[in-house]
Write a protein that binds this DNA or RNA. Structure first.
Lengths: 198, 198
DNA sequence: CATCAGTGAGACAAGTATGTCTCACATGCG
DNA sequence: CGCATGTGAGACATACTTGTCTCACTGATG
């Protein structure tokens, strides 16, 4: 079959290049096309044959990140069961891609005026909907807006990804740290028979 | 006095340039030396006369950020009173400089290998000490490490600064949002006579 | 074996930011 | 007024990245 032959000749598959680029750019967001190519084990020429330019590469990574987020959202079934548990599932699903998301998150800060990909808007809305659902059900407090909670979740994910990358926290604690801080905060839960001053 | 005359001739004072650069780079972290100069109302030549190069400028901004953090830490008296209140004071003191800190925070992600300024180490230690104190006093939970709580605080500060800059949240809520989420989390405090399923 | 698609290596031009320099202008001082 | 200092404007060389191109090599196909 012609497409099988084609596949075999394409020793460099697009997905592997994207993964390598994501892993590299997570650590060094200013890496050049040459560094990206070397990280993927291909030449700069081949890299340019697959992605028209750096912009195209970044946009492909953005599409990858969006796809992974949507997969994570679906897998976490954020509209089922207690919102608290849904948040736990969501963070656990996103964890493997936190590095890429941190890169894209900081990258988006550079695009001052340009409108962001609509995919992010959908994801923002899904996450915000989860927090809104938790507020409606009475699980979550209502004095923090869903928009802020969504931003805070992104910030915590990025912080955790960087902290893990630099060895300041243990990778195994990733999900627990984020979820526990986001859900319960740093304040210790009051004992049933504890003192009452606020 | 000779130094007075000197002052008057130095129509461009270093501090004003730094503030302008901080304000600009907060919004556009890739701004050119020329853009920085224009933002400060001076020429690129004069900018280069005050700061040997872009690196020197960024390092000066880093020193400024460190100084402001140390001032904030001192003003917040983080070693006095309940740790909870100290956190509130600290965030309130840092709020005006959150934009600059967000820039420096993301900038530090680029310096892969280079060791970071020792000033940050001191600040990290002071913040971590605050969280440790709260844990010792029983105010804060002990299953989240002070190192992670410190990182999380930085992440929330950066997230909030960006969210405010892009108009996704109201500036007036800045301190409240960060402090409340950090301290209490998103979960609603349980009522004294509420149901018990986890 | 002959062919051809895909790749790697490298040359090349173009764009951009940087750092340095010169020169003219303005302002305060003696 | 004459002088010195600090500044703005711009030219200039340099370095780096990008994007395009050519050419030789490899391996699978027919």
């Amino acid at each position: 079959m012609s497409h099988m032959r084609y596949r075999r000749l394409m020793a460099v598959d697009r997905d592997h290049v994207l993964r390598s680029a994501a892993a590299l750019l997570t650590r060094k967001s200013t890496a050049t096309m040459d560094e990206v190519a070397k990280a993927a084990g291909i030449s700069r020429a081949t890299l340019h044959r697959q992605f028209a330019g750096r912009d195209a590469l970044v946009r492909a990574l953005e599409a990858l990140g969006i796809a992974e987020c949507e997969t994570a959202l679906a897998a976490a079934r954020t509209d089922e069961g207690p919102a608290t548990d849904a948040v736990r599932r969501l963070v656990a699903e996103i964890e493997p891609h936190a590095g890429l998301l941190a890169f894209l998150y900081s990258e988006n800060q550079l695009f001052e005026g340009e409108e962001q990909n609509e995919g992010w808007a959908r994801i923002d809305e899904s996450v915000a909907a989860l927090f809104r659902r938790g507020q409606s059900s009475g699980e979550f407090r209502i004095d923090l807006t869903p928009a802020w909670l969504t931003e805070a979740l992104y910030g915590l994910l990025a912080s955790a990804a960087w902290a893990v990358a630099e060895g300041r926290v243990a990778p195994k604690d990733f999900t627990h740290m984020i979820v526990e801080l986001l859900l319960g905060g740093v304040r210790r839960p009051e004992e049933p028979a504890a003192r009452k001053e606020s």
